[in-house]
């Protein structure tokens, strides 16, 4: 892994891989890397939180270990589990061989019988991976408690085996989008950064990076349109991914100017508006008004 000296290097390194980070975010990531602390990213859906982890993994040329959280996620699915079937068979076999209980117990509680789940996998890798704990607020509060040991000490305690300590501590990125309030204990262990929707210049840079062949006039219009659309009262505010889809949809439909073909533009809106009531609220007239403002 090459040594990154200042956050400007990091910023341009990420930009080369197609991720435009604001100064604010770049400094947070830079500190997380230099201080070796987990980074908690919070923000609305679709502002590119998960993407940070992907880009970092690519940049450091290392593996991305991803743990997607959901309600009901527990230690057995996130950290480790014993392979019960294999253990059972082994006990049977040892009974037939006539080995002692002590030896059998030592064998079935060894690493061979352990099923690694993402968190344990992340700390046993030979090269420090990027560990992405995605949407941590979807998991229950009890699950946060499991994370505490891993996040502060980079170790996992397995009662039967002892403590497994990371030889190469992973770079941990946690994301959340405010489904529920996270506990203070978890927040304290992380650096925190709130990721906002990008400003127009930044968003234009993102669009240019992803769709370099788009004509400059249309790109500007799209950004102006999406930025203004976010000001409207919507249930689901479109994120960056939606904006990129919208741009792809427009070029797919062969539209060169947003104010030219209202019908087609309206059709392309399905890439931006994801609920029925939002689609009903943004009528053709509203679209044209916003497009007019953007131009």
């Amino acid at each position: 892994m090459e040594r990154i000296l200042t956050f400007h290097d990091l910023q341009s390194g990420m930009a080369d891989l197609g991720y435009m980070a604001s100064d604010d975010l770049a400094v947070s990531i830079h500190l997380a890397l230099t201080l070796g602390r987990p980074l908690l990213l919070e923000g609305a859906a679709g502002v590119g939180k998960t993407e940070v982890a992907r880009v970092l993994a690519e940049m450091h040329d290392t593996e991305l270990v991803r743990l997607q959280c959901y309600e009901g996620l527990d230690a057995a699915q996130a950290i480790y589990e014993w392979n019960y079937q294999k253990q059972l068979l082994s006990i049977r076999a040892s009974a037939e061989e006539g080995t002692t209980g002590q030896a059998a117990e030592e064998r079935i509680f060894s690493r061979d019988y352990l099923l690694e789940r993402p968190l344990l996998a992340a700390i046993t890798k030979d090269k420090a991976p990027i560990l992405l704990i995605d949407e941590v607020d979807r998991a229950d509060e009890e699950f946060e408690a499991y994370l505490l040991e891993i996040l502060s000490e980079f170790q996992i305690t397995i009662p039967e085996l002892g403590t497994v300590k990371a030889q190469h501590p992973p770079i941990v990125i946690l994301t959340c989008n405010g489904t529920r309030d996270l506990s203070d204990a978890l927040r304290r262990r992380c650096l925190y950064s709130y990721v906002n929707y990008p400003d127009p210049q930044m968003e234009l840079a993102i669009l240019n990076a992803r769709h370099p062949d788009l004509n400059a006039h249309l790109a500007k219009q799209i950004i102006g349109f999406v930025q203004n659309l976010r000001e409207e009262e919507l249930e689901k505010v479109p994120g960056i991914a939606e904006m990129l889809d919208f741009a792809a949809a427009l070029s797919g439909l062969g539209i060169a100017d947003l104010s030219k073909d209202p019908e087609q533009v309206q059709r392309a809106l399905i890439a931006l508006l994801k609920t029925q009531s939002d689609q009903a609220a943004i009528t053709t007239e509203v679209t044209q008004r916003i497009a007019g403002k953007a131009a």
Partner: peptide, 18 residues
């Protein structure tokens, strides 16, 4: 400005703080 950005992730813990 760099100090401001550097201390932000450490001193804040939720959106209200930010």
């Amino acid at each position: 400005d760099e100090c401001r950005n550097a201390l932000r992730p450490i001193c804040t813990g939720c959106k209200e703080d930010v």
